[in-house]
Simulated scan of single mutants.
Amino acid sequence: MNPHSDNFIRNLELIRSVVAFTGLMLLLTWESFAPFFAYTAGRQRGTHVFRNLVVGVINALLVGFVFASLWFAVSQWAERNQFGVLNYLKVPIVFHFPGALLLLDCWMYWWHRINHRIPFFWRFHRMHHSDVHMDVTTASRFHLGEIFFSSCLRIPLIALLGIRFWELIVYETIMFLVVQLHHANVGLPRRVDNLLRLLIVTPAMHKVHHSRWRIETDSNYSSLFSFWDRLFRSFRLRKDSHTIHFGLDEFDLAEDQTLSGLMKTPLAERAPKNLERK
Rank of each mutant, 00 (worst) to 15 (best):
M1W: 07
N2G: 01
S17E: 09
T22A: 04
L24P: 01
L27Y: 01
L27G: 08
T29S: 11
A34T: 15
F36M: 09
Y39T: 00
G42E: 13
R43M: 10
R43K: 11
G46P: 01
H48E: 09
V55K: 00
N59I: 03
A60Y: 14
G64Y: 03
L70F: 13
F72W: 13
W77G: 00
E79H: 01
L86V: 01
N87C: 08
L89S: 06
G99F: 07
L102H: 02
L103P: 06
C106G: 15
C106H: 04
Y109D: 06
R113S: 00
I114W: 10
I114V: 13
H116T: 04
R117V: 13
P119Y: 02
H125C: 06
R126V: 12
R126G: 00
H129N: 01
D131M: 05
V132P: 12
M134T: 15
L144V: 06
L144R: 10
G145C: 12
I147G: 08
F148R: 09
F149D: 06
S150Q: 15
C152T: 13
R154P: 05
R154C: 02
A159R: 00
L160D: 03
L160G: 02
L161C: 12
L168R: 04
E172F: 03
Q180E: 04
L188M: 07
L188E: 09
V192S: 04
N194M: 12
L195K: 05
L196D: 07
L198Q: 10
P203D: 07
S211P: 11
S211N: 15
W213F: 11
E216W: 10
T217I: 10
N220H: 10
L224M: 06
R230E: 04
L231I: 07
L231A: 00
F232G: 02
S234W: 06
S234V: 09
R236E: 03
L237N: 01
R238N: 10
K239A: 13
D240I: 03
I244C: 02
F251K: 00
F251A: 06
E255Y: 05
Q257S: 09
T258M: 10
L259I: 10
L259P: 03
L262C: 01
M263D: 05
E269H: 09
E269S: 09
A271V: 15
K278W: 14
K278F: 15
